[in-house]
Amino acid sequence: MSIANRPAHRPLSPHLQVYRPQLTSVLSILHRATGIALSVGALYLATWVIYAAADAKAYALFQSFNTSIAGRIVLGGWLFCAFYHLANGIRHLFWDAGYGFELKEAYRSGWIVVAVSLIATAASWIAGLRLV
């Protein structure tokens, strides 16, 4: 058996399970998670306009889910995902341009993303529920 074919039982690094969660790593994982959620959400929004192009009865069926508790959670959750991914995405674009790599700056921009996404989500929920 050649060295290349030998099964590798070497320890893998880094072990995510033994890492203490930090703001920067949690935000990074959340960026991916919200990105996946938003991709599914984009299909849901496409479905919304497809139903709107159909007749009123089909649309009412779709809307009856949107106005239910589960629908409110889905749409409200979509708003949080959108605001978070938007704010953290802008943070990523600054990194792409070469700014904000210092540890202190990465933490500061991270907390700004948390604050902006929570405030925008709260404001949109309050405004949305007042209109219903």
Binding site: A52, A82, A120
Partner: peptide
Amino acid sequence: AIALIPLVVWFAISLVMLSGADYDVAR
């Protein structure tokens, strides 16, 4: 991503404004 910055802001505001909109309003 850059294109989506203004588009998502616009769409999120619109989605909130359309809360509870019926078939005719949405269309």
